[in-house]
Design a protein around this nucleic acid. Structure first.
Lengths: 402, 402
DNA sequence: CTATTTCGTCATCGCGGTTTACAAATTAGT
DNA sequence: ACTAATTTGTAAACCGCGATGACGAAATAG
């Protein structure tokens, strides 16, 4: 052993990456990408003033990004002010694509999103996955991925990575499903089962839904709480534009926040968890309905048709949600709460009780509650966009793949 | 208007500071300071391998830091391995000092901490502050600050800033006390009242207590929940080594998390808040005791003397805390929960019920609950150290003051 | 048609970390 | 004791990257 090259002892105080000129360049490349991406189309000079570098510096950065196929020169802008018009730059529509996938309880979906954020290819397969072994399900998913990748390539895109949204807890390693009760998957390593050659990330659908809200929602703040529900109730905490994952990656388990400490026993071992009052099963039972597929759609239709029992059940669920969210809001002081997933469709009947509870139990102005307009597409889009964001956040990585 | 110099439009996507070479240097200076500070004493070569720069680069950084009086050369190390021994570097004990202050309900305290973390001067004044006007209280505090600053200067230190811990909510501006019920201060701007020439930061004592735990506690993780209580119950959420403050700076209001949604009315407007069960007043009432000064000490003594009513009251408080913390732990998945402030002294009687609730209501291994060993000193030390950390985090700022 | 403004680029510069080389200071081996 | 090997700290030359300043190009204003 002649030379321990780096002594990578991870200091307890956190990683201490060296701050080198290359890193600086990489970050500035990312800034250029983000600036152009945010405005859709921008001249070099405009980018320079946005990110605080000189025109000359931006020019060299842009040259490189164009060479890598991440930016495109659209040609001269229509002159608005005095002076020579700039040459419009836009994020490339023929470069890398993010492949997003979703394993739902009764469907599989895959889509490809380009750097501009446009969905360029998609594939869906309906059919219940609950209780099936992971093997065949993932095999079908792989087929869909291959089709979408082929379609994307036909449009001049190349896949930069694959992100999969699953309805369950995912380990912090980013590819193992620890526990997905609605699929009955436990400790399933998707990394081993998905033989696409693509870099893989797996995450909770609630997390991807929250990211979609952050990136695609109109005027979504950088600090918010995203609540969604399929069968369980999951929340995602976004702090300063970043997902809070927790030590084991289990953060956001809103469904098991105690609402009535002496309430009925829950599968988690506790009593009176939120899920006992606002979970799909609980609401159906309270409404006097049978459990079935598309239960959420049924609830919405019945509530819309003035079904008294359903309305009362949803009202009570809203109350329970309000109590749990009061705790969360007191703890986190977020800028807003966003209802997504199945909750978005039921919002009209949940919101009154929920907001009343929140207003009563909080001093000062209550935390605003918004409804996601992304609906059930959130997790899939969030997954695909997470790959795209990774490219925008560090464009230099794609250069290595040329 | 010849040239809009920077067009500082704060982009919705967050600040986009230009990544310039100067910024790089500043961050590397900070890395050197942190490396030396963490190990106590380190050679240039050791620093270089820790932070991933070359020895030559570190040499120039160290030269500068020594010139600014932030590092000291201690001379040759005792040789342990083969090869020329390094020259030990240490953080200076004669440079800038952080001045911390605490406004308690019945005391004022000020201390000075040097870059090494040692307390070098202190001053305390006992006497109830509850209900007194801010003016005279702050005037007394100013006197203590002046004394401590003078003492510190006599030891060759110079004050780099003042941080004040108060028992109440502080606005995100960092100097206005929005609401301190136990002092009866409301909307008090300490910036205007503290005429020291020093840069001022004001924050909640629970926040400073949590930071003290993070920086001074043994093996405290970077993701934890710090719970403290004086009269109210405050928590501080630390995520990735950073305080989570919330939109208005009100994050961590654990005291008003609903524990029994139909419980007694609370001053906050809600019902059955944690404070109704585990707040000082509530515990005293449940124990059949009168409210008085040093109520916590009284409770601890009585519980230690096997007073049955007190024990039961504390047990019930522990249960309520456990319920509220279950919610918080489910939401945040922290690495641990730390009991600080008054709770630390009462921990022996709170913990059993608290941990039982937490274990019962959580799947998998329960989140570990630790007791702070900093006790009532936490907020004061945290305040002083926050100034010290600011210097370590950006040593270049002190150069401007030479 | 000229003056002015703005854009993109080029050559030059300065700053900052790297590389290479070397002297100094220590241990290991004979 | 003397040599070889190893490690430290520093100095000189180098290279990458953004800043500066100048310039031609392309538009508007008068």
């Amino acid at each position: 052993m002649t030379a321990p090259p780096h002594e990578t002892r991870p200091t307890a105080t956190g990683r201490a990456l060296p701050d080198t000129q290359q890193g600086m360049r990489r970050r500035n490349l990312a800034r250029v990408m983000h600036a152009v991406s945010a405005e859709g189309s921008l001249s070099r000079a405009a980018v320079a003033s946005r990110i605080g570098l000189t025109r000359a510096a931006v020019s060299t950065l842009v040259d490189e990004l164009i060479r890598w196929g991440l930016l495109e020169e659209l040609g001269p802008e229509r002159p608005s002010r005095v002076g020579r018009p700039g040459s419009a730059l836009a994020v490339s529509g023929h470069g890398p694509a993010g492949i997003g996938a979703e394993v739902g309880v009764d469907h599989l979906a895959v889509c490809a999103v380009d750097l501009r954020g446009a969905v360029r290819a998609r594939a869906v397969r309906h059919g219940a996955n609950r209780g099936r072994n992971p093997g065949p399900v993932v095999e079908e998913l792989t087929g869909l991925v291959r089709r979408v990748v082929a379609d994307a390539e036909r449009e001049g895109l190349w896949p930069a990575g694959l992100a999969v949204a699953v309805p369950g807890l995912v380990a912090r390693d980013g590819h193992t499903v620890v526990h997905a009760p609605n699929l009955d998957w436990h400790g399933t390593d998707l990394g081993a089962l998905l033989p696409t050659g693509l870099p893989l990330t797996v995450d909770n659908e609630a997390n991807f839904g929250a990211l979609a809200e952050l990136w695609l929602g109109d005027a979504t703040p950088r600090d918010f709480l995203h609540v969604s529900a399929e069968i369980g109730i999951g929340a995602a905490v976004v702090v300063d534009g970043q997902l809070l994952r927790g030590k084991r990656g289990f953060a956001g388990e809103l469904g098991h926040v105690p609402v009535r400490p002496d309430g009925p026993r829950c599968a988690c071992g506790g009593r009176g968890c939120l899920e006992q009052y606002a979970g799909e099963e609980a609401v159906l039972r309270a409404a006097g309905l049978e459990s079935r597929e598309d239960a959420v759609g049924l609830l919405a239709r019945q509530a819309g048709a003035d079904h008294e029992g359903v309305r009362r059940a949803l009202h009570d669920a809203g109350t329970a949600l309000g109590i749990a969210l009061t705790g969360a809001v007191n703890l986190l002081d977020p800028e807003s709460v966003v209802l997504g997933g199945a909750l978005a469709g039921l919002a009209p009947w949940l919101l009154p009780a929920l907001e009343a509870e929140l207003a009563d139990r909080t001093t000062g102005p209550a935390c605003p509650v918004a409804v996601s307009r992304l609906g059930h597409e959130g997790p899939l889009l969030g997954a695909a966009h997470s790959v795209v964001r990774a490219v925008l956040d560090d464009p230099a990585t794609v250069a290595e793949r040329l």
